[in-house]
Design a binder for these strands. Structure first.
Length: 262
DNA sequence: ATACATGTTGGAGC
DNA sequence: GGCTCCAACATGTA
């Protein structure tokens, strides 16, 4: 479940805004009793976090991880992790992480890193990316402190769109390329949301779980990359592995480490 | 049908 | 203390 999907859930849950929770059920180990008879004040998201904020100021945070799911006014044939019953209906969450937050949300969340937030700040993202020069681009896009909400689908599709090999190091990119990467990530997140709303997200996948490149028909490579060890789907022909040219001191000629120039 | 994957956390080990 | 690695969680899909 990636960031854009949470905006859809947030929207669907808005029917419960201002309603009182009459009962809570489920096998979560989080201490949720305090929310009985409390009024849901606001539904927020931060990246992949779904935050249900109550009038008391305490919140329930849901993270869907890889296999989380939910149903509104409907139950799956499966033990729910958390069920919230309101007078006008109920929501069920499955296989997710549930956490109770007592902190002020502004104290623990920085919405300027949330790609889909109105507060999203591309300049901040630029600075953060530049601070991680040694990282591979595939790893940096999954960094939730920089690109909150970006998941592996978005990562792979964005890297294809900007024609960068997932193992390219940030240090090998020009400032212009970094800015472009950030802008394209923002654009793809908005497209993801738009496409998902009309059930045509998969139709737009170009490399993620695809067999061949839509441009050159080369077989899509699929391998785990980077320190995060997540699958990267990419076209080795269209997506360039940029490497920083090593310059010999005092000479303008480009040297290639380890290779003999003939 | 077996393996993999829209993800993160916490603990072990160094 | 900090860093890295890996198990754990759990289920729909290929």
């Amino acid at each position: 479940m990636e960031g854009p999907s949470l905006l859809i859930i947030k929207d669907e849950l808005s029917v419960f805004k201002g309603k009182k929770v009459t009962a809570l059920e489920g096998n979560t180990t989080a201490l949720i009793n305090e929310f009985k008879d409390q009024t849901l004040k606001e539904i927020k998201t931060w990246g992949k976090h779904l935050i249900l904020k109550f009038k008391t100021k305490a919140s329930i945070r849901i993270h869907f991880l890889m296999f989380g799911s939910y149903r509104i006014n409907e139950r799956k044939d499966q033990q729910e992790r958390l069920r919230l019953i309101f007078n006008n209906g109920e929501v069920n969450f499955y296989n997710c992480s549930v956490k109770v937050l007592h902190e002020k949300l502004e104290d623990i969340y920085d919405w300027s890193t949330d790609v889909l937030s109105p507060q999203w700040c591309t300049e901040k993202a630029f600075d953060q990316v530049k601070l991680n020069a040694q990282e591979e681009v595939a790893d940096i896009l999954l960094d939730q402190e920089i690109f909150s909400g970006v998941g592996n689908i978005i990562k792979n599709e964005v890297l294809f769109n900007v024609k960068l090999h997932p193992k390219t190091k940030v240090a090998s990119l020009s400032n212009k390329e970094v800015k472009n990467l950030i802008k394209e990530t923002e654009i793809y997140c908005h497209n993801f949301l738009r496409w998902k709303k009309v059930y045509e997200l998969k139709k737009h996948w170009q490399v993620f779980r695809k067999r061949t490149c839509p441009i050159c028909e080369t077989k899509i490579s699929k391998e785990k990359t980077g320190k995060r060890n997540r699958i990267s789907h990419y076209c080795e022909k269209c997506q360039i592995l940029k490497t920083k040219p090593v310059r010999k001191p005092g000479k303008s000629k480009v040297a290639y480490a380890g290779k003999t120039l003939l």
